[in-house]
Design a protein around this nucleic acid. Structure first.
Lengths: 338, 338
DNA sequence: TTTGGCACTCGGGCGGGATGAGTGCCAGGA
DNA sequence: TCCTGGCACTCATCCCGCCCGAGTGCCAAA
C-alpha cells in the first residue's frame, strides 16, 4: 500500500511534468514543493513508485515521468475537477450565444473547447435516435420524387430523396404528411418504427407502394451510420505535443480523420459523468499516447450526444475536465432554449 | 530570353526536386535526363536561371531548388494537366456514387480528393446565392414561433427559427407559404430580395408584421457568413511536408482552421478554369510555403462553389491539377443528378 | 558556345572529452 | 523503523575539431 506521502510525491511529479514537459528529479521536486523531506527520501519513494509501475525513467540518470497507470491514479484519487474562473464562464456564454442554427452551435462549441483547453476538440451532433421528432415534411419535387425532411427538437435537420414506385398526388402526400406527423411528433425517434408500422394499411391500395417506400427511407435514415456526425477542431494544437513530431502527430491526425474511430471513441465513454481514457486505455493504436476526456450533453437530463477533447497523456487533467464539463453544460442550455 | 534548353533544365529540376525532395545538382541532372549536354553546360544554364530568379541555392555548395517564380513558369509554360488513369476515374465514380445527401457528397469528395492527391483537400458547400430555390417551407412550432426551411436545387438545406411579433394562424401561414413559393421556386437566390419585396403589402394589416419578420430572416440567411460553409480533410498528409515540422506545419494547420481564410483563398480563385496559387502568391502568411490548386464546380455550366487542395509548393502540379479537375467534374454530375 | 579541369566552399557526419543532472546504495542518527 | 547526508557511478547532451564529398564558379581550350 502506498503511503500518504508517496501519493503526494506522485502528485508533485505529475504536476511538474505537465508543466515543464521534462523528466522531474528528486532535487527539483523538494525545491518546488513543500514535502518536508529531503531529496534522498524522495528518491526512496520514487523507487517504490517505480516498482509499482506508476512512474518510469526514460533512461538511467534521468528524472522520472508518470506512466499511464500513474496518470490513472492521479485522475482517480489525487485530482479534482478545476472549476472555471468567472471570466472563463462569461467567455463561454458570450461565445455560444448568438449561434443561428445547429451547425453554428456545434461549430462554435468545437472552437470554444479547442481554445479553452488548447487541445483537439471533438463534438458529436445530437443523435437522432435519442432526440424527439419536431416535424416531418414531405415535398413533391417531381411526380414520382419526394423529398423527406426530418426536424428534431435539438434543431437537427436531415433530408433524403425518395424515388417512388408510382406518381403520387398532392392530396395523397398531404394525407400522408398529416397522419405521419400526428403519430410521431413529440415522440422519440427510437420509437418511430413501431409507431408507423401499420400506417401503409390505412391507405388505398394504389398509394401503399409509395407510403411504404417513404417509410422505408425514413427508417433507413434513423439507423444509417450518417446519423452519427461530428465536428473536430483545434488540430493546430497538436503541434504543441512534443518535439519528435512526425511519429507522434501523424497517427493522431490519421485517427482523427476517421470518423468511425472517433465515434467509437466517444461511444466508449460513459453515458453520464465524465470519462477519462488514458494512453493505452484507448483501443485505437494511433491514440496510444493521447488521453481522451469526454462527457455527454443534452438539452434535458439525458445525454443526446457527447463531446470531448483529445490531448497528450501529459495534459492538465483538472483544468481540462473542468472546461469540458462547463462547455457541455452550456451547450445543453443552448439546445434547451432553441 | 530563356533558351529552349534552359527551360528544359528548369523542367528537369522541378521534376527531380518534386520527386526526391532534395536540392538537385548539375551532375545528377545530366544522369537522369537526356539533355545531351555536359554538367558544365548545365551549370552555366543554372547560373542564368538563378540570375533570373527561377531557382535558388539553399546554401553555397548545395544543389538548386525551384523558387516560387520557377514553379510559376513551370505551371504556366512547361506542365500540362495530367489526365487520370481509367482505374482512377472508375475509383472516383464508385466512391462518389451512393452518397445519400449533400453532407455525404461533400464528405466523400473531401476524402476522395485527399486520397488521390495525398494532400489537404478543401471543398466548399454550394453557395446559396448562386443556387436556385427548390422549396421554402414554413412550420409553426408554437403560436408565435415559425421554423423557416430553405431547400436548394443542389440539395442544400438551411433552417432558421423565427420569433414572430404576434401569434400566426395556420391559414395565414399556409397562405404565405404558397405565395412565397409561387414567387421564388426555380429562381436564383440572388434574385429573391426583389421578388419578395412587395409581398407584405398584399397581406392583411394584422399579418404584415409576421410576414415582414419571416422575410427579414429569409434575407438574412442569404447574406450571412454561414452561407459559406466548407469541409476539409487529409490534414494527416501535412506530416509528409518536410522534416522541420513544427515551424512548417503549424501555421498551415492554423490557417486551415480559420474558415474565413480558406473561404477567401477559394474566393480568390477564378470562377472558371483552374487556379494555381504558388507560395507567396497566397495572401495569407501561414500559407506562404504552400500552393493552392482550386477549381469551380457546379451542376450545370456555372460554378456554384469551389474545391481544391493545399499542399507544399513542391508538389506534383500536373497530377494534382488532373485530380482536382476530374473530381470537380464528377461532383458536378452527381449534383445535377440529385 | 560547349567542354573538361581544377581549386574552393561549406553542410553534415563522426568521435572524443567535458559537463552535470540524476540515481542507487550505505552508514549513521532520530 | 524511518529519515538523511554523503558518495560513487551512469549517461544523455553539448561542444569542438576533423574529415569527406557533393556541388559550385571560373578558366582555358576546343
Amino acid at each position: 500500500m502506498l503511503s500518504e506521502r508517496r501519493l503526494e510525491v506522485l502528485r508533485a511529479i505529475v504536476q511538474d511534468y505537465v508543466g515543464t514537459e521534462e523528466p522531474v528529479g528528486s532535487k527539483a521536486l523538494t525545491e518546488r514543493h513543500q514535502l518536508g523531506v529531503s531529496p534522498a527520501t524522495v528518491r526512496n519513494d520514487m523507487a517504490a513508485l517505480e516498482d509499482e509501475g506508476f512512474i518510469a525513467q526514460p533512461h538511467t540518470s534521468a528524472g522520472r515521468i508518470p506512466t499511464d497507470k500513474g496518470y490513472r491514479l492521479f485522475v482517480d484519487r489525487l485530482a479534482g475537477v478545476k472549476p472555471l474562473s468567472p471570466a472563463e464562464r462569461r467567455a463561454i456564454q458570450n461565445f455560444l450565444d448568438g449561434a443561428v442554427d445547429l451547425d453554428d452551435v456545434v461549430g462554435r462549441t468545437v472552437r470554444l473547447l479547442a481554445q479553452l483547453t488548447r487541445q483537439v476538440a471533438v463534438v458529436q451532433y445530437p443523435s437522432l435516435t435519442r432526440s424527439t421528432v419536431r416535424h416531418v415534411e414531405l415535398l413533391a419535387l417531381a411526380p414520382a420524387r419526394v423529398m423527406l425532411v426530418l426536424i428534431t427538437d435539438t434543431g437537427r435537420v436531415e433530408q433524403r430523396m425518395v424515388d417512388c414506385p408510382a406518381p403520387v398526388g398532392e392530396t395523397a402526400l398531404a394525407d400522408l404528411r398529416a397522419r405521419l406527423n400526428s403519430r410521431v411528433v413529440g415522440r422519440r425517434f427510437a420509437d418511430v418504427p413501431q409507431l408507423v408500422q401499420d400506417l401503409p394499411e390505412s391507405f388505398e391500395q394504389e398509394d401503399r407502394g409509395t407510403v411504404s417506400t417513404v417509410l422505408a427511407t425514413l427508417l433507413e435514415t434513423l439507423v444509417e451510420e450518417t446519423e452519427e456526425r461530428l465536428m473536430i477542431g483545434g488540430t493546430a494544437n497538436l503541434t504543441r505535443f512534443g518535439h519528435d513530431f512526425p511519429l507522434t502527430i501523424r497517427p493522431v491526425l490519421e485517427a482523427l480523420e476517421e470518423q468511425v474511430v472517433l465515434l467509437k471513441l466517444l461511444g466508449e465513454a460513459k453515458d453520464s459523468g465524465m470519462t477519462v481514457r488514458i494512453g493505452h486505455e484507448n483501443a485505437h493504436e494511433g491514440l496510444n499516447s493521447t488521453s481522451v476526456v469526454a462527457v455527454g450533453y443534452g438539452s434535458g437530463d439525458e445525454a443526446v450526444a457527447k463531446l470531448g477533447v483529445v490531448g497528450p497523456t501529459r495534459m492538465d487533467y483538472p483544468g481540462t475536465m473542468g472546461a469540458v464539463r462547463a462547455v457541455a453544460r452550456y451547450v445543453g442550455q443552448i439546445l434547451a432554449e432553441s
